[in-house]
């Protein structure tokens, strides 16, 4: 019984220590713990997937179907869709879901007469994260019948990125609610 105080002390101090892990800390996944049925080791076979999902989103199936249909996006679907939505007010020149690039054509907003804009967006990966999208806006002004490159405020790029991220977040929460 002399063990008890030691174990109790450990039980209370270790969780506090755990909070100091910082970047070296992560949640241990459920499949990293052993599994027994009575005295018998229950080996988790390799290669088993999510199985039969009764309610909710079957992510394995989504991935499978996307792969089978050959339309598998190599970039995050929410970011991709959100970028398309956000830039849809401009005419699209090219969109490559595998490379993750969207390039618009020149567009002159009504009433802006002597200036036109063009945007390039890159969706950078499969994960929905805030640095997963880059937007670059180009601007030209009409000077004596010639379009000349003009500077764009750097804030414009990041504001557009913010809008893409906000849209992605909205799309994500819509799909989770389904």
């Amino acid at each position: 019984m002399a063990m008890k105080p030691v174990v109790l002390a450990v039980a209370f101090t270790l969780p506090l220590l755990a909070a100091c892990g910082g970047n070296n800390q992560r949640l241990v996944n459920n499949d990293e713990y052993g599994d027994y049925r009575g005295s018998v080791a229950r080996n988790r076979p390799r290669g088993a997937d999510a199985g039969l999902v009764i309610f909710g989103v079957d992510k394995n199936r989504e991935a499978r179907e996307a792969a089978a249909a050959g339309t598998g996006l190599s970039v995050n679907a929410f970011l991709w869709r959100a970028t398309l939505d956000t830039l849809s007010f401009m005419p699209l020149a090219s969109a490559d879901p595998f490379g993750g690039t969207i390039i618009t054509d020149w567009y002159s907003p009504p009433g802006a007469g002597a200036e036109r804009f063009r945007a390039q967006a890159y969706v950078l990966g499969r994960q929905l994260r805030s640095d997963g999208v880059r937007v670059q806006v180009f601007r030209q002004t009409l000077d004596r019948g010639q379009w000349l490159d003009s500077p764009v405020s750097t804030a414009t790029n990041s504001e557009l990125e913010d809008k893409v991220l906000a849209r992605a977040r909205e799309l994500r929460s819509q799909s989770a609610a389904r």
Binding site: A48, L52, F55, V57, L128, S130
Partner: peptide, 15 residues
């Protein structure tokens, strides 16, 4: 923070 809420999934598994 950028966590998306996920409705509970119910899965049947076993052996």
């Amino acid at each position: 923070p950028a966590f998306a809420q996920e409705a509970p999934t119910v899965r049947i598994g076993g052996f």
